[in-house]
Amino acid sequence: MRTTTKQKIAFSVLFLSTLMVILPVVFVLGTIIKNGWQGISWEFLTSMPRDGMRQGGIYPAIVGTVYLVSLSIVFSLPIGVMAAIYLNEYARDNLLTRLIRLAIVNLAGVSSVVYGLFGLALFVTFMKFGVSILSGALTLAIMNLPVIITASRESLANVPYQFREVSLSLGLSRWQTIRHSVLPFAIPGILTGAILSLARAAGETAPILFTVAAFYLPKLPASIFDQAMALPYHLYIISTQIPNIAVKTRYATAMVLVGISFTMNIFAVIIRSRLRKKKKW
C-alpha cells in the first residue's frame, strides 16, 4: 500500500476516535438541554421543594451549593496562592520541595469519597463542627487546593524573571518584590484557576455526602454550622432514591447544575483569553 494511502487511513481512524470522544459530550449536553429547559422556571429556581421533593423548586439546594463553594474558596485561595508563592519564589530544589510536590500530586489524586471520609473524621467528629456547611466547605477546600496551587504557580512562573531582578535592583525586599512586581501580573491566571476550582467544587457530591448534605430540608441554612441541601446531592437523591418524580424535574436540576459549572468555566476562559491578548512582556 502507498504510504500516503496508509496515512489517509490512519488519520481517518484518529478522526473517528476523536469523534467518539466528542459525540458523547454533545449527546449528554443535548439530552439535558432538550429535556431540561421545559422544567426550568423562575418558580423552580426560587421556591422550596414540596411533597417529598416531587413538587416545588430547588432553591435551598442552589443556596446551599453557593454557600459551600464560597466558603471553601475563602479557605483554599489564600493558602493555595501562598503555597504557590512559596514553591515558585522561595523554594530551592531540595528534598522538602520534592516532598511538597509529591504531596500536591497525591492530594490531587485522592478519591473524592475518601475526602468525604476524612472530612467526617476530622471536621465533623474530631473538631465537632458536626454535619455542617463549615465541615463540607473545609473538606472541599482541601480537595481544591492542588488545582489552585498548580494554576497559581504556573501563573507566577509566567511572570518574566527580569521583573524580579529589576525590582530587587531597585532595593525592594524579597516580599515587596513579590507583592508589587510579581503578584499583580499573575492575578488573572490565579483568578482563572480559582474559578475553575469553584466550578469543580460546585459539582462534587462524594465529599459532601457525610459532611454537610441534608436529604430533604425545605428551609435555608441560618449559619455555617447548619446542614444544607446541595445541588449535586439533590440530583443524586431525586434520580436514584425517590420514585415518581417527573422526569423533567430531574433533567431541569441537572441542567441547573451543568449551567452553573459551565458559566464559571466560561468566565475562566474569558479571563484567560483577555489575559493572553493583554500580555505585552
Binding site: I22, V25, V28, L29, I32, P232, L257, N265
Partner: peptide
Amino acid sequence: ILKSGIEMLAAIPSVVLGFIGIVT
C-alpha cells in the same frame, strides 16, 4: 473547538453523568 469540547467534558459533574447514564 475540539479542545473546548474536551474541557466541557471535564466540567460535567460526575453525578450528572451518572444521571444521564441512568436515563439513557
